[in-house]
Amino acid sequence: MSKSIAREFAKGLWSEIPPFRLVLGLCPVLAVTMSVENGIGMGLATTFVLVGSNFLVSLLRNVIPPKIRIACFIIIIATFVTMVEFIMQAYVYPLYLKLGIFIPLIVVNCVVLGRAEAFACKNPILPSLADGLGMGLGFTLSLSLIGAFREVLGNGTFLGLQVFGDAFVPFGVMVKAPGAFVTLGLLLAFMNLVPVKK
């Protein structure tokens, strides 16, 4: 039992890591990963929503009528998004301002709805929690990785600290939208080079 829970947790970190293996939830990946800090913040906010919604969906999986399940999932997800919005407003206000409308947009992140539909509504609570946590941390990892590439190349900093000497001319386009598309495309290609053991 504990082995299978560990497996559900670990698959989110490597074999099904979003957004590289599961190409879902690209909007926040592209839009907020200007810096590592943004990536981590967005990733953790999504993790909170994922764990919460997986827990509640799994708890209610025998009560929710199958015909209107998507609507029910969306309401559950929106509730947790509203919660995370308040938590961020209270404790990390500068980050809340930076992420702006992308926090409410976690509602339409397909990773969250995808996990509710594909996993949580069919499995008991513990594996669902592990799945949500694993997926969320995997998502955080990916966002920070993309953020790291873009921040180092586009700004010459890592978590706000200077990486290169004064002679380095930042590659400004990397922190703008084109940099996001190209970075994600190339990272995806690298992930494709590494096969997944089934």
Binding site: V173, P178, G179, G185, L188, A189, N192
Partner: peptide
Amino acid sequence: VPEALTDTAIGLVTAGFISLAFM
């Protein structure tokens, strides 16, 4: 297209260049 880049990966890179043009 090189195998690793097929489909979504090349799509994203292309989108990056279109986005660069829109800049």
